[in-house]
Computed example of a mutant assay.
Amino acid sequence: MKRLTPALMHLALLTYTVVALFPVFVILINSFKARKAIFREPLALPDADSFSLVGYQTVAMQGDFLLYFQNSMIVTVASLTFILLFGAMAAFALSEYRFRGNTLMGLYLALGIMIPIRIGTVAILEMMVKTGLVNTLWALILVYTAQGLPLAVFILSEFMKGVSDDLKNAGRIDGLSEYAIFFRLVLPLVRPALATVAVFNMIPIWNDLWFPLILAPAEEVKTLTLGSQVFIGQFVTDWNAVLSALSMAILPVMVLYVVFSRQLIRGITSGAVK
């Protein structure tokens, strides 16, 4: 079986990106249209007759969406920081040092990939109640960190195994500590993997509704996704406001993808092509 060339691999990723972004494009254009135009011509661009900012006006008047946005940013950035830091440190230890139980430890950390964290929702809620962390951002940060660590360790450990031992040994000969080797030599070489882990974890964290609804439903700690639910009713849904809120929520994810796109593609295709 022939391997894909780098050009074909990048073309496949570009095609997938275009297909994946089409729903985002539909949401954005419909957020600037009147309600009738959304259902009459959902794929048409807004024109002089259909253009409307009523959705964004509703979002601005109902609910404190700046606060929701701030809460989502704090939770996402803090969770990603802890995931990348602790995940990279654990991956470095597993890939660099040989000790009894190394393989078992790696398998134990990988179990989180196969077992969804939502299965333990009741136990997590009881734990947060006992520690007094319900209706705090720390509850979400801790849960998302635990959720993202298994995948981070799994991906980063494979990349760190490919870092040259000669480079690390040269650092030790020069008197560098293990922390200096980790931060100054290893981490810069696995930046594509770090970007991959960051993107793969940011999207589920930013878009999650389950844990904010259970652990932090209070008004002052609502996330953007949870705050958007105010426009979705049992009998009536304000689609203009929903699409406008979703458009605002998409922007940070798009910015992150643009910033890390090159590193992300390098991380995904590393080792897949020659």
Rank of each mutant, 00 (worst) to 15 (best):
R3A: 10
T5L: 06
A7E: 13
A7N: 13
M9N: 09
H10N: 15
L11I: 04
V18D: 10
V19D: 06
L21P: 03
L28G: 00
F32T: 13
K33C: 08
A34E: 07
E41I: 09
E41S: 12
P42F: 03
A44C: 10
V54K: 08
V54T: 09
G55I: 01
T58E: 14
V59W: 00
G63A: 10
N71E: 10
L85P: 03
F86H: 05
G87K: 05
M89G: 04
F92C: 07
F92L: 04
T103K: 15
M105W: 08
Y108Q: 10
L111N: 03
L111R: 03
I113N: 07
R118Y: 10
G120K: 05
E126M: 14
M127K: 11
K130W: 01
L133T: 02
L133Y: 02
L137C: 04
W138A: 08
L140E: 06
V143C: 15
A146M: 08
Q147D: 12
L149Y: 04
L156H: 05
K161F: 04
S164C: 11
S164N: 13
D166S: 13
L167R: 10
L167A: 12
K168S: 13
K168V: 11
G175I: 05
S177T: 12
E178H: 13
F183V: 07
L185A: 01
R191I: 12
R191P: 08
L194Y: 06
T196N: 12
V199T: 00
I205H: 04
F211V: 12
P212T: 09
L215D: 06
E219V: 14
V221D: 02
V221R: 01
T223S: 09
T223F: 06
S228G: 15
S228F: 09
S228I: 08
V230F: 00
F231L: 09
I232Q: 12
Q234W: 02
W239G: 11
A245Q: 04
L246W: 10
M248E: 04
M254T: 07
V258P: 03
V259T: 11
S261Q: 15
I265R: 10
G267S: 15
I268N: 06
G271D: 12
